[in-house]
Write a protein that binds this DNA or RNA. Structure first.
Length: 381
DNA sequence: AAAAGCAGCAACCGCCGACTT
DNA sequence: TAAGTCGGCGGTTGCTGCTTT
């Protein structure tokens, strides 16, 4: 090539920084309804002023229904340590062995907790090793020190407590020797049962979720499954209006940044009404909002049902007590400026012309992660 | 009580490989 | 085969809250 890589998006035209609940809702609603076949185009289709990469990251790391939040269990930490020994900084591969965990999260945990912990142990251990030979301890997921099983608090904040020190066994496992002797892959296979075919084995979380690309799959989620997601939205956000946003034809008819012959041809052919992508009917939605999903056709009632389900899932309820809201809102959640929880809220970048917004307070997932603080000031937009 | 330092983590950046044209 | 696009990955940044002084 030699031309340098074109930027994935126009940095001046996209919003950056923390995601607001409204943006999350939009993204979730869009993906649940239409999938994410094309991340680059998704923001525009969903009406988000975000880079496609940013959307992808947000979805993969935080909004996916199957993403697991909360502190890492000792077992998970041990797995990370073992896998890191075998694989190095292959966070996505490590993540593939930890269901529900994302590479980013694992990377953070490693950098902030495990690395330091191991370094500390190593230094203390090395001094101890000078006086006595290293014992041979087999490595397995069940080999754990007494502290390994102590302090199991899956739902407690993610911080690792001092009492939760990882065992020396994990550190001193025979892994080290084996890694030196065997190939990385062999060791990995032995310890974690990775399939021989790397292509089969390296199914990362992200790739798994990437397979969810059409609505027929998305809607297969049961509400209770979705409830397991970190969709604990709080605040006076009008779910209906947000869902309407992603339904808006003008959001689905993507006006490309760059001229796209096919797109304009599409318009010229006056085929909008009947245009069907493989998964999403991008054309102007009739009132019925028929969506062609492969062989499936989501009819009126299905669209309504979906909307209704979402509404139920978000649980439009009465006001959330001030004392409770802090419990649910994620840390660093971008909050629109001067947001008043007692009043309706106008999304600055997604304002509806005639806002007949009937904001309801959205009940939160009971499983919203450790986030306990409420950021009242918004970082740059 | 205020300031400084530290830790945690969400998000961004840029590179790479796979795939398409 | 070259050029271009896109998704994915890993490194890094910078903001925020907490702890210490």
């Amino acid at each position: 090539m030699g031309k340098g890589r074109a930027p994935c998006c126009d940095k001046t035209q996209v919003k950056r920084g923390p995601w607001s609940p409204a943006e999350d809702l939009k993204l979730i609603a869009f993906i649940q309804k239409y999938g994410h076949e094309n991340w680059r185009a998704l923001p525009k289709q969903a009406g988000l002023m975000r880079c496609g990469k940013s959307c992808r990251l947000r979805w993969i790391n935080y909004l996916r229904p199957d993403v697991k939040r909360g502190n890492f269990t000792p077992e998970e930490e041990e797995t990370i340590i073992r896998l890191h020994k075998a694989l190095g900084n292959k966070w996505s591969k490590i993540a593939s062995r930890l269901p529900g965990r994302t590479d980013n999260e694992i990377k953070n945990v490693w950098n902030t907790h495990l690395k330091k912990r191991l370094a500390t142990k190593k230094s203390s251990q090395s001094s101890a090793d000078e006086s006595k030979p290293e014992s041979s301890i087999t490595s397995s997921s069940s080999c754990s020190s007494e502290s390994f099983f102590s302090n199991k608090r899956p739902n407690s904040p993610k911080t690792t407590t001092p009492g939760n020190e990882f065992s020396d066994q994990a550190e001193k496992s025979s892994m080290t020797d084996k890694i030196e002797q065997d190939s990385e892959k062999q060791v990995c296979n032995e310890l974690i049962g990775i399939a021989e075919d790397p292509k089969e084995s390296s199914v990362s979380l992200s790739s798994v979720e990437s397979n969810i690309v059409n609505t027929s799959q998305i809607v297969a989620y049961k509400p209770e499954q979705q409830l397991a997601s970190p969709l604990s939205y709080l605040g006076p956000y009008d779910v209906d209006s947000i869902l309407e946003e992603v339904d808006k034809p003008n959001h689905l008819i993507e006006i490309p940044w760059e001229s796209d012959y096919d797109f304009w041809k599409l318009l010229d052919d006056d085929s909008l009404g009947s245009f069907q992508s493989n998964e999403v009917q991008l054309g102007e939605f009739p009132a019925s909002q028929n969506i062609i999903l492969g062989e499936e056709s989501v009819q009126d009632d299905e669209a309504r049902k979906w909307s209704h389900d979402i509404e139920n899932e978000f649980g439009v309820v009465g006001e959330i007590k001030e004392s409770n809201k802090d419990h649910f809102l994620p840390k660093n959640y971008a909050v629109e400026p001067q947001m008043d929880h007692t009043q309706t809220f106008d999304f600055d970048d997604m304002t509806r012309p005639e806002s007949e917004l009937d904001f309801g307070y959205i009940q939160l997932w009971p499983s919203w992660p450790q986030n306990t603080s409420y950021i009242s000031n918004q970082r740059e937009t």
